[in-house]
């Protein structure tokens, strides 16, 4: 569906990403993982056209890139226009892409979308400030899926949320993938969340791809030393296991 081909971006002498190539296949969830500074954000910005790469290109197998590729941002407190109501936010894509021209039609569609992501129809005339982080992220998801995209790019969509709410949003994304047949590029640093959601992984280290593989292969049998060390550091909510792991080093 979406292919990154040799993406390279430099800022002055600093190389943010170099020769990043991968393909997001139809119907799969691809995890893009790495630590801060690994180049995840730059890669995403190049993919959605917010940053122009110095070399390489992005290919999208479908018409109308702007409609077909949608994005959910990390910080739901920053990604919603504070002066628009939920109905306007979620309905905007329907309007600008000419999907639903009548205002009443948009409202009824928005109501359906809100219910799809687990919000209430009656929420649509409220402003973002009256929603919690998790609810805002649901609004952002509703906005993205409103235009019936083929690809959803999620940039750390749950890392700013409370633990008990993270799981809710992860479940919503999983449902969306199953119900809508979306291809999802899921950017994250939390390998436990990624394991839950992703079919395949691309591991970034210092702006380059360290390893690519299926979920089963990477979690059971990581090849790159970098992936191994990342996996070894994932904390587990089990005191006995943690003690064992620490004494092992």
């Amino acid at each position: 569906m979406l292919t990154a081909d040799g993406l390279t971006k430099r800022y002055g002498r600093f190389t943010a990403i170099e020769d990043i190539s991968f393909t997001l296949h139809a119907g799969e969830v691809l995890g893009l993982v790495g630590e801060s500074g690994s180049g995840k954000s730059t890669t995403v910005r190049c993919l959605v056209g917010l940053t122009k790469p110095d070399a390489g290109q992005v290919r999208y197998a479908g018409p109308k890139f702007r409609r077909g590729v949608q994005m959910v941002f990390q910080d739901p407190y920053a990604s919603l226009n504070p002066r628009m109501t939920v109905a306007e936010i979620v309905g905007e894509g329907l309007l600008v892409h000419g999907i639903e021209k009548s205002s009443a039609g948009r409202r009824s569609r928005v109501g359906g979308l809100l219910e799809q992501v687990g919000l209430d129809k009656s929420d649509m005339d409220r402003y973002p400030r009256s929603f919690s982080g998790g609810q805002r992220q649901r609004i952002a998801i509703a906005r993205a899926i409103a235009v019936e995209p083929k690809v959803l790019i999620c940039d750390e969509p749950v890392s700013a949320l409370d633990v008990s709410v993270q799981a809710q949003v992860v479940n919503v994304l999983r449902d969306m993938k199953l119900e809508l047949g979306l291809s999802i590029l899921f950017i994250a640093h939390d390998l436990a969340v990624v394991r839950y959601l992703c079919d395949r992984l691309v591991v970034l280290d210092g702006g380059r791809i360290a390893e690519t593989g299926t979920r089963e292969q990477i979690y059971a049998n990581p090849r790159a030393p970098y992936t191994k060390s990342l996996l070894a550091a994932v904390p587990v909510p089990d005191p006995a296991a943690e003690r064992l792991r620490r004494s092992a080093r």
């Binding site: 590729v69 949608q70 920053a78 990604s79 905007e92 906005r143 993205a144």
Partner: peptide, 22 residues
Amino acid sequence: ASTYVESARTLGVPPGRLMLRH
């Protein structure tokens, strides 16, 4: 440079509307 304007851009909001609404 705010995220909600970037998210409107990724949604495909055209420049005039971007300026007036966001």
